[in-house]
Amino acid sequence: MKELLQVDNIKKSFEIKKRLFKSAIEICVIDGVSFKISKKQIFGLIGESGCGKTTIGRLVTKLIEPSSGKMFFNNKNISEMNKNETKEFRKKIGMIFQDPYESLNPRFTIINSVKEPLDIDGRMTKQEKFDCVKNIFKKIGLDTTEYFLNKYPHELSGGQRQRISIARSLIMKPKLIIADEPCSMLDVSIRSDIMNIILKFKQELEMSAIYITHDLSEAKYITDFVAVMYLGKIVETGQTQDIIDDPYHPYTKMLISAIPDIISKFKINISEKIPDPMNIPHGCAFHPRCPYAKEICKRIEPENVNVGEGHLVKCHLF
């Protein structure tokens, strides 16, 4: 396999602890997700809150383990990695989180936060680490003075903090980064800066990325491939341009038509019902909201249908 990352039919369920009334409930957050990422590819994951995209990010970085299914990184099964292999694995991936305020330890100065991966690796001298940090800061566009490096996160703005998080995830020159909605808590004006940084490093480091977002316009800007998720399943996947120009799945069409500034060719009425991961509908999970729903949609889950070059849709309409 030449793929950098291959995810095969991953499933993940969580158990909710007993509360006053209910006994333990199992919620299936990811229900059979598969995709592939090659080198120098940015792969987008789009969906509403609660569809499971953050969980995918955590599964890939081995922060949580899947209930079933396999994930392969450079042909190695991620779940079966031992301690040493995991350590090596972690050096090759990086993660950028959504919340720039919480993802940095408030007691660490910036330089301590950013050089932590180097500390864990343990091979560089103090001076080398210092230079490395300064280097990457320069590329990202952050101040490299001693004064700045010794600041604390709460003294900086959200945009700066997110850049620092990016710096930390990139300092080990990873082959794959997982960006979990990196821009959703930032001002609109800063978003393109952050995305440009990721694109720049994609070129320089020949890096791939999983870019998780709920914003289609971000996906359009940065991703090569995109997968649309709904309630734990990928309902449509393909090249970004294809999907945006020619969406097949009703849900994708709904997402595109919901963007206020694009004069959409596909105006669809959006039904009111909010997806609830605790109550996943039978058959096709989208059928309660789907304006084209048929009888078969309520009973049988649709399979992947190939409608173009690498363009797959899970829908009974095709």
């Binding site: 050096k91 919340d99 919480e102 993802s103 330890n105 864990i120 995830s169």
Partner: peptide, 16 residues
Amino acid sequence: RLYIDSAKATGASNCR
């Protein structure tokens, strides 16, 4: 807290 996850993702051991 998120920064603990962050540290884990960079490979920090439990001890650390």
